[in-house]
């Protein structure tokens, strides 16, 4: 197992499967009368969030606490210092505190990579700019495997604001490593430059892709990252790329609807679709804790010596 979890792109098939298998074990802990394991007693995990997040931060916090680690929440927002400088200062502070792991979310792509060079502990990328969000992809893969029994050979369609989505990028790399065939569907303005180098098929027509999809993953339209007009109106976006009841009916009966949250109901996903039994939105949150426990165990559960 590696020392940091920075992206799913450099995760081998064996490592990815090890995380998913370990997460299966962690999922059973939630059913026990005592939901706490002593495994990471005495270890310190720092949640370093330069961007707002409730879901991911609490998920990491709960995961670390279930493994008996000490958790410190370090929120930094709107710093006037230039980003690089403030990150390095923070890294030095964390280093002095003796953090064993740093869970980092940052608006700048690549920030966790920089951090990894400055601290001795493990760095877990909890989302960096529009680059990657590896634990989200791992929990999505875990959810798919639990519901459908496998990932290899499945057709997974990722729909929406691919351009600004770190979730999409992490899922593309992970799911193709795990043997799924990934299609991304988006308006042409929201398809990133360089997509031809991704292991994906690109489509602009959602209705054409839905009948052949085993999993449909909807992405949030990230208004806060949009610096230009990428589509005419919200109504038009919802009509062409939103998942409503009619489109749900066009999908195979066993196909799953996923969303990393937070959802914009009525925009990329209709409310009744989000609440349907085929939607895994709530499961994804529960599975997130199991997957993050698995990653923390695999990064911190063994010897610190680098072989």
């Amino acid at each position: 197992m590696m020392r940091h979890l920075l992206s799913t792109r450099d995760l081998s098939l064996d490592d990815a499967l090890l995380v998913l298998d370990t997460a299966e074990y962690m999922a059973t802990v939630a059913d026990r009368s005592v939901k706490k394991l002593p495994t990471l007693r005495g270890r310190t995990v720092v949640n370093l969030f330069f961007e707002d997040s409730t879901r991911t931060r609490t998920s990491f916090e709960l995961a670390a606490k279930r493994l008996s680690a000490d958790v410190i929440n370090f929120s930094v927002r709107g710093s006037s210092v230039s980003k690089g400088e403030s990150l390095k200062d923070t890294a030095q502070t964390l280093e002095a505190m003796g953090a064993d792991a740093v869970v980092c979310r940052h608006p700048a792509s690549g920030a966790p990579h920089r951090l990894a060079a400055w601290v001795r502990g493990s760095v877990l990328n909890a989302g960096d700019g529009i680059h990657e969000h590896p634990t989200q992809a791992l929990l999505d893969a875990f959810t798919i495997r639990r519901r459908l029994g496998r990932i290899e050979g499945l057709s997974v369609t990722i729909v929406g604001d691919v351009l600004h989505s770190r979730v999409a990028r992490s899922n593309v790399w992970l799911l193709s490593t795990l043997g799924a065939a990934v299609t991304v569907v988006a308006p042409p303005t929201l398809v990133p430059v360089g997509v031809e180098q991704w292991p994906v098929t690109v489509s602009y027509d959602l209705d054409a892709v839905l009948p052949g999809s085993d999993v449909v993953m909807m992405l949030r339209v990230q208004r806060e990252r949009m610096t230009a007009a990428f589509f005419p109106t919200e109504r038009e976006y919802a009509r062409r790329y939103g998942l409503d009841a009619d489109r749900l009916a066009a999908m195979p009966l066993s196909a799953l609807v996923m969303h990393p949250g937070p959802m914009v109901r009525g925009m990329e996903i209709a409310s009744d679709v989000a609440d349907s039994t085929r939607s895994t939105v709530v499961e994804q949150v529960a599975n997130g804790v199991s997957v993050r426990m698995a990653v923390l165990y695999l990064l911190l559960g063994g010897t610190r010596e680098v072989p």
């Binding site: 090890l18 298998d21 074990y25 394991l37 002593p38």
Partner: peptide
């Protein structure tokens, strides 16, 4: 019953894979 998560010697060697309980 897999006792791995309760061992007192986890830090002495590489991370151990977990088995089924």
């Amino acid at each position: 019953l897999d006792p791995t998560m309760h061992r007192d010697d986890l830090q002495l060697r590489a991370v151990r894979p977990l088995a089924v309980t």
